[in-house]
Structure formats: structure tokens, C-alpha cells
């Protein structure tokens, strides 16, 4: 074998072993646990905080409103859909106040006329002409419309 080829082979073996060593050291521990990914990332994603805690949690402190809402046509709407995420509010209600959506535009998102809205799914109103001077909540109770 010519000397230059020998030298190259030695060099090649060194480079490849170095690479394999690096690969071994640098691959994350949980990689390949379930598939070609970092197994730990599953737990990391699962551990993210929940912000919309659900209407059931409100019963503890706002039982009358929950009960009221359940009787009305808004029963399927989550409290937090209108009031925003309550993950802070349920712990420190005095400090972290929730949103009070009292504008006409807010109700209009669901109730204004739009030919695309299925009529069976929601009752629509001509928002421009339906008592335009007042807020909706002066006449309709948002919790039991």
C-alpha cells in the first residue's frame, strides 16, 4: 500500500471515531425512548400550565350565577369564553379581576346577522337597528338571556 493511502486511512479512522464519540456524548439521554425524538419533551409539553380552568371551578364562589346560567340559553357557553382565562382569578380573585365584556360588539360577534351562521345554531339580530342606543346587557342578562 502506498504511504499516502496509509496516512489517509489512519486519519479517516481517527475522524470517524471522533465523530462517533461526539455523537454518543451529544445525543440527549431520552432520545429514541418512544421514537425518533426526545422522550422527555412529552412530559415538558404535558406540564405546561392550564389557563382556561372551566366553568365547574366557578361554582365554589359564584354558585348563583352558574345556576342561573344553566337554566338559560347561554348554558353551553363557558364562563371564561366571555370573561377570559381565570387561572389567576380562582386563586387571587381580588387581585386578578376578570374581563367584563359589556360592549355591543362583543355580543355581536355571535348574534349579528351573517348569512354564514346556521340559523338553527344561534338566534341573530339586526344589531344596527335593535335598540342601538343602549348596551345589550341593560335589557338582557348575559347569564340568562
Amino acid at each position: 500500500m502506498p504511504s499516502q493511502l496509509k496516512r489517509l486511512l489512519v486519519l479517516g479512522v481517527i475522524i470517524i471515531s471522533l465523530f462517533l464519540l461526539l455523537k454518543h456524548l451529544a445525543t440527549p439521554v431520552s432520545f429514541g425512548q418512544y421514537g425518533h425524538y426526545r422522550g422527555n419533551s412529552l412530559n415538558e409539553i404535558a406540564a405546561l400550565p392550564v389557563k382556561y380552568v372551566g366553568s365547574k371551578t366557578c361554582v365554589k364562589c359564584h354558585d348563583s350565577i352558574v345556576a342561573l346560567k344553566l337554566e338559560g340559553l347561554h348554558s353551553d357557553i363557558q364562563c371564561e369564553n366571555c370573561h377570559g382565562p381565570a387561572y389567576l382569578h380562582i386563586k387571587t380573585p381580588k387581585k386578578d379581576k376578570l374581563f367584563r365584556p359589556d360592549s355591543r360588539e362583543f355580543c355581536a360577534k355571535c348574534h349579528s346577522f351573517n348569512k354564514a351562521r346556521p340559523e338553527k345554531a344561534v338566534t341573530q339580530q339586526d344589531i344596527k337597528n335593535h335598540h342601538p342606543e343602549k348596551k345589550c346587557i341593560t335589557c338582557h342578562n348575559p347569564h340568562q338571556p
Binding site: S3, Q4, R7, L11
Partner: peptide, 13 residues
């Protein structure tokens, strides 16, 4: 790379 052989044979290689 420390290979100094430039004999005609090596060059042929």
C-alpha cells in the same frame, strides 16, 4: 500530512 515520498512510483499512485 507528513508524507514526503515523491518518487515516480508514489506520484503514479
Amino acid at each position: 500530512l507528513g508524507v514526503y515520498d515523491i518518487s515516480p512510483e508514489a506520484v503514479k499512485w
